[in-house]
Amino acid sequence: MSVTVEQPDTTKRRPPGRGRSRHEGVGRLAAYLVSPSLLVLGLVIGYPIVSALRLSFVKSIEGIDPDTGLITRTSAFSLENYTNIFKGDTGAVFWNAFWNTTTFTVVTVVIETTIGVCMALIMNKAFRGRGLVRASILVPWAIPTAISALLWRWIFAADGVANDVLHANVLWTTEGFQAWLAVVIADTWKTAPFIGLLVLAGMQVIPAEVYEAAKVDGASGWRTFWRITLPLVKPALVVAVLFRMLDVLRMFDLPFVLIGPHKASVETLSILSWYEMNNLRFGPAAAYSTVLFIYVAVVAYVFVRVLGADIVGRGIERSR
């Protein structure tokens, strides 16, 4: 959201006494002017969040009328939806999904960042056919996740291309490490270009003089990369990594379509929430979503704190 209202700097020309009320008037006007957008944001973001939060505390108790077979349902506010998540069998399922979500995030983001930076380095070079290379690197990113998951399912089928190329007979979509690996491969294929694209944008604003100076000083290509490219591209890179992390933490469609629902080796937190909702248990579904929401928020906060990710564009001001 970048709704900023620049106030005309009129205070200096006015007597100090009147300036204050004038200032307040302008501030109020600004508030009125942004209120429509805030209202819209409140309705499409605020309302669902608050409503989901409220729902997550609603515990519904169901019974079946022994004569008619109809469901009787009463509901009450309770913490049970949350406590149930961590208890017994559901607890095991939850921690497994939590583990999957976390390992997916760490592993895919590390691989994607490495490959993405390499892609950006290639795309940033001036050579013949550069346009073609850029376009082809970006193709995976342009394909919707569900479609790419279907494509990869063909590749990872028992009689698919992957087994043909490897001369192996791996059953990729069955439970086990190979299913997890298949998701990592497909996700990397699809989203490394995203990091590549953002990093490329960061690289293109690095002035050529810096590189020329490095060359004059006799710095090696490797040293130039570590000492010049990487530090200067860091603000863009950190934002790209943050976006990817937030994206992977709520991963749903890729494991769901590629491997299938209810496969413990690739079940993520969003899939748990989907399953509860699909079985009309909206309270527990909202509780799962809230737990995921908190997890994402904590990761984002820590990340911003530790790496100083600059998501609101303050860094540009600072460097000026």
Binding site: G27, A30, L38, T68, L70, T74
Partner: peptide
């Protein structure tokens, strides 16, 4: 003033959310 506006919007939607009931369930016959 922005945060006041945000807060009031949120209170508003919270009120709306509070109104919506969720007691569905089967009939009796």
């Amino acid at each position: 003033s922005v945060s006041v506006a945000v807060l009031s919007t949120l209170t508003l939607v919270a009120g709306v959310a509070g109104c919506g009931g969720d007691d569905g369930g089967g009939g009796t016959s």
